[in-house]
Each structure stands twice: as structure tokens, then as C-alpha cells.
């Protein structure tokens, strides 16, 4: 019996003014799946990801995360509550890390559980320390973010998102702001999170990661999903010319 999807994006449209950036996009992600969203910049992949937790408000269509259904055209207090519920079910990791600079690493990680969920501080610290340990950042728990390298910041950001115990993790180009030598440590942590069974949607340019870790790669161009395949099939036999161009460019960069 196929399990019902944990994320269901239905007929999503997004306009920025008159610019149509998402064109009737639908996507279903079953639990524990790792999906990589790839495409050239401006293809709408980040916008799609950000619509899932309503950091961008979609213009039409609906989002469903773990049974919480939010219609793009909903309004008022009820809508705000639904968006809040969706945000509690999703953890997000940003390209620019966005750690809170005025808080220590540990305080960054417990901020969400304590302030948003009202979790007991001691319990939050315990959970935060476990997660910091699992991303290899426990030893920096009392440091401030400005003292960390980019890769370390991103690992803390992942721990911060995980400590909210989300059902789905959203990654918005998590390695694009990193020096090349720091990308590996972040990808390794993401791989670990994937192996622990987390559902993940990852916007990335890291084809190596997509090929190795993703269960499925979705290609976007001009605000549409143009291809949706397993990484093996996609890299071996891209159907769309635009996908082929994307993969060729990656291959030439690799060689």
C-alpha cells in the first residue's frame, strides 16, 4: 500500500508583480524520501521551496504538510494558525545560515523549542546537545556564531532546525555560500540526516550530492517541473534538452 505523501504541493502559482515565477506546480513527496530540486538560477526552485513553509506566499494552489492543508487564498487568523502549524512541521536551512549573532551556539539551538514550543529549558538543552553532537558541533556550543567557519555555522543551523523535531527538512542551497573546502562537512551532515530517515527537500547545485544521496531529482526550468526521475535515470538519460544542458555543464565542471 503506497503511503500518503507527507508533502503535497498542488497547482501552485506564484507571481512577483507581473512576473509568473511558479506555473501550476504540483509535487508529492512521500515520507523518508530525499528529493533534490535542481535547475538554473531563476528557475523558481528556491521560490517553490520557500512556498512550502510560507516564507513566500503562493498566489494560488495549496500546500499540505503532514496532514495540515493550507490554501494559498486563505485569510485571517485561521490562515496564520495553519501557516504556524506548517512551520512547526518543517525545519529550514538557509544559504546564508542566518544564525542569531547575539546568541551562543547552544542558545541558537534551544531558541525555537523554548520560545515557540514552550519546552522546558533543561529538556531543550539536552535535546540541543544531542543534535549539536550529531552534527559534530558540541565542542563549540558556548561560542558565538561570528567565531565559526561557514561550514560550522551551517552545521549549527542544521542542528537548530532538527531540534524543533520537524517532519520535513527544507534546504535552500545550503552549500552555495561556502568556500569549496567547507562544502564536504555540510554535505556529510546532510547525508547523515537523510540516513536517519528524515524527509528532505534540497535545493542544490551539488550534483554529486544529488546523485549519491537523493532518492529522486526534480528539475525545474522557467517556473515549471520539467523532469522528475531517480538520479541514475536522470544522469544517464535526461529527457529534456534543458536537463541535458544542466548535466553537461556539471560534467564539464567535474572534469
Amino acid at each position: 500500500m503506497p503511503s500518503s505523501p507527507i508533502v503535497k504541493i498542488s497547482n501552485l502559482d506564484k507571481y512577483f508583480g507581473r512576473l509568473h515565477v511558479l506555473k501550476n506546480v504540483s509535487l508529492e513527496v512521500p515520507e523518508r524520501q530525499v528529493v533534490c530540486l535542481i535547475g538554473r538560477s531563476g528557475s523558481g526552485k528556491s521560490t517553490l521551496l520557500r512556498c512550502i513553509n510560507f516564507l513566500e506566499e503562493p498566489s494560488r494552489g495549496s500546500i499540505e504538510v503532514d496532514g495540515v492543508h493550507v490554501d494559498a487564498e486563505g485569510k485571517g487568523k485561521q490562515q496564520r494558525q495553519l501557516i504556524h502549524d506548517v512551520r512547526l512541521k518543517t525545519g529550514m536551512v538557509f544559504q546564508e545560515f542566518n544564525l542569531f549573532p547575539h546568541m551562543s551556539v547552544l542558545d541558537n539551538v534551544i531558541e525555537g523549542p523554548v520560545t515557540v514550543k514552550g519546552m522546558d529549558r533543561r529538556q531543550a538543552i539536552e535535546l540541543a546537545e544531542q543534535n549539536l553532537d550529531s552534527v559534530g558541533m558540541f565542542f563549540k556550543k558556548d561560542e558565538y556564531p561570528m567565531r565559526l567557519s561557514g561550514g560550522q555555522k551551517q552545521r549549527v543551523a542544521i542542528a537548530r532546525a532538527l531540534t524543533m523535531e520537524p517532519r520535513v527538512m527544507l534546504f535552500d542551497e545550503p552549500t552555495s555560500a561556502l568556500d569549496p573546502e567547507l562544502i564536504g562537512e555540510v554535505l556529510n551532515v546532510m547525508k547523515k540526516v537523510a540516513l536517519e530517515g528524515m524527509t528532505m527537500i534540497v535545493v542544490t547545485h551539488e550534483m554529486g550530492f544529488a546523485r549519491e544521496v537523493a532518492d529522486r531529482v526534480v528539475v525545474m526550468a522557467d517556473g515549471e517541473l520539467i523532469e522528475d526521475a531517480t538520479p541514475e535515470n536522470l544522469f544517464k538519460d535526461p529527457k529534456d534538452a534543458r536537463t541535458k544542458a544542466l548535466i553537461d555543464r556539471y560534467r564539464s565542471g567535474e572534469g
Binding site: N53, L55, R87, T90, N98, L99, V116, A161
Partner: peptide
């Protein structure tokens, strides 16, 4: 980005 990170964690505008 700071506001977005807070919002993504589920904080209200006041928080």
C-alpha cells in the same frame, strides 16, 4: 534573513 530564520522556526512577529 534573521526574520526569516525566526519565522521558519515558528516565531510570531512579536517574538
Amino acid at each position: 534573513g534573521q526574520r526569516e530564520a525566526a519565522m521558519a522556526l515558528g516565531m510570531t512577529p512579536g517574538q
